[in-house]
């Protein structure tokens, strides 16, 4: 028969339990983790943007229009797939990001998306962001510049908002 607990078990067991619980409490916040090195700032460039599909549009023929109900008749039809978006980011004259972003979704019918972290030393930096969303364009459709004095631990965000003229820096 398992021997019943004794007074000594309560004391010794209590001390062990207390030590384990205190150890768990200490490990719940220590030792600390250095997520971002001292003296560094974090730049994040992120956006969701669909490529320009206007190049794929064509007018509907009279036969096609005839097959559609009146409330669904429209002048032109466009491809449901988005073209890819090309993006580049230069920091202090160096290209740190150059990617062609495919449309999202299993069928490529969603907009392109980007979320990219770039760690930079604190200090003054020049940023140039470029984006091409129309496959017909030879260069880039958008190009914006900014200069920023980053302090350690700062979060600097670059987003793309076409309604505001392209990239925004804050």
């Amino acid at each position: 028969m398992t021997r019943p607990a004794r007074y000594r078990d309560m004391v010794a067991g209590g001390i062990v339990t207390l030590a384990v619980t205190a150890g768990a409490a200490w490990l719940s916040a220590k030792p600390e983790w250095q997520s971002l090195e001292p003296g560094m700032a974090l730049v994040r460039i992120s956006f969701t943007h669909g490529g320009d599909r206007s190049g794929s549009c064509r007018p509907l023929t009279a036969e096609e229009l005839a097959t559609l109900p009146r409330n669904m008749q429209r002048k032109e039809i466009c491809d449901t797939h988005y073209p890819p978006v090309t993006v580049e980011l230069d920091v202090d004259g160096q290209t740190v990001l150059a990617r062609e972003l495919p449309p999202s979704g299993f069928n490529g019918t969603g907009p392109s998306r980007l979320y990219q972290r770039i760690e930079l030393p604190a200090g003054s930096h020049d940023f140039v962001a470029r984006l091409r969303d129309n496959p017909q364009t030879a260069g880039f459709d958008y190009e914006n510049r900014a200069q920023a004095d980053l302090v350690p631990g700062q979060s600097y965000v670059i987003e793309f908002k076409p309604a505001q003229g392209g990239f925004t820096f804050r």
């Binding site: 983790w33 971002l36 560094m40 631990g153």
Partner: peptide, 19 residues
């Protein structure tokens, strides 16, 4: 959110995979 946590006290039981 204007800054980035540089040094954090991680719960090493639940968040040990985060580093």
């Amino acid at each position: 959110l204007a800054t980035v946590p540089q040094r954090v006290g991680v719960d090493w039981f639940i968040l040990s995979l985060y580093p």
